[in-house]
């Protein structure tokens, strides 16, 4: 796994995720990266990567909605100007 730092330099994060506990995809996977979003601008996140942690918070065992909420709040918070994703291909 490697850590990808996504700087919040756009209005949206710009990723679509699929997966979560009790589904066929047990951990959230990136299925879309939207042009012009912070993730696209970062250039290091790729479609197909699996997100293990967000800012050190593990997504293992979390339902889809819970994982999505953690990522959304990490992007919304003003405490940091970036998000650290621990991802694996």
């Amino acid at each position: 796994p490697n850590v990808v730092r996504v700087v919040k330099n756009a209005n949206t994060l710009g990723i679509a995720i699929e997966g979560g506990a009790n589904t066929r995809q047990p951990l959230p996977r990136i299925v879309t990266i939207q042009k012009g979003g912070s993730a696209h601008n970062c250039g290091q996140l790729k479609v197909g990567q699996i997100i293990l942690e967000v800012n050190g918070i593990s997504l293992r065992g979390r339902e889809h909605k819970d994982a999505a909420k953690i990522i959304a709040e990490a992007f919304k918070t003003k405490e940091k100007d970036h998000i650290d994703f621990l991802v694996v291909d």
Partner: peptide
């Protein structure tokens, strides 16, 4: 393991 995974529901997709 594969059979158990296939019996699980597909996940929803969320745009963030």
């Amino acid at each position: 393991v594969r059979e158990r995974r296939l019996t699980l529901p597909p996940s929803e997709i969320t745009m963030l």
